[in-house]
Amino acid sequence: MGPDQGRLTMELIGEVVAWFTDPANWTGTNGVPNRLLEHLRLSGASMLVATLIALPAGLAIGHSGRGGLLAVAVANLGRAVPSYALLLVFLPFFGLGDAAAFPALVLLAIPPILVNAYTGLRGVDRDLVEAGRGMGMTELQLLLRVELPAAAPVVVAGLRLAAVAVVATATLAALVAGGGLGRYIADGFGLRREDRLIAGAILVALLALVVERAFTFAERRTLLPGDQRRPSTADLAPPPLQSGLR
């Protein structure tokens, strides 16, 4: 790194700061609030649908203990295919824009939610389940009153992993002419406007960080008193999923 390089870096930082302080970047279709909203809308919708599919499936498999291998196999298959490839796969069917990104994000979010719900439930002490069943709980009562509360930290950790991955990956929507914060990156790249590109990257990173913090907070809430210093529950889920998504 020569002095030249250093000067350039300083200049770039100045430009990025200028980008953030330029009121023009905070209004209109291409303003930060609108792009953020688009980003959250796409991520939120994907998470919602993925949760509606994966959570009941994971809980059902975890509760009954049947179909566990199948679930893991499906989940792993989903993870093996890169999101970018998925995006392109859906392009012909859904056309340009968020519509193509949406199913790709849903498929991205399903594995961690499914697998954590499944492993979380499987990890619940069998004695608790036995006690509940022996006292006359129905299977649904067992699931909702015994298994889910006991597995909550792991289940929420799955949601966290999925949410962070979705928020980060939603950036790719811009590549297929969608909206969201990814626009800054795609446009910055296309127009060779480094300030915009870096500003976009910073925004995406910040958002992912905020989402991660929010879910971690929720996870903590599910821990029991006297249990506060338990290691991060993310560690409880199977390792391959973790490394693939973080």
Binding site: L128, M135, V146, P149
Partner: peptide
């Protein structure tokens, strides 16, 4: 079966209290 079980008190080998419920809630399960 659930009706039968609710009429039979059950103390399991490893106690099996629900960790996420208070003692009061645990006792009031049935």
């Amino acid at each position: 079966v659930t009706e039968l079980r609710r009429g039979i008190g059950y103390v399991i080998q490893q106690v099996g209290l629900f960790p996420h419920q208070t003692i009061g809630q645990n006792v009031a399960t049935v």
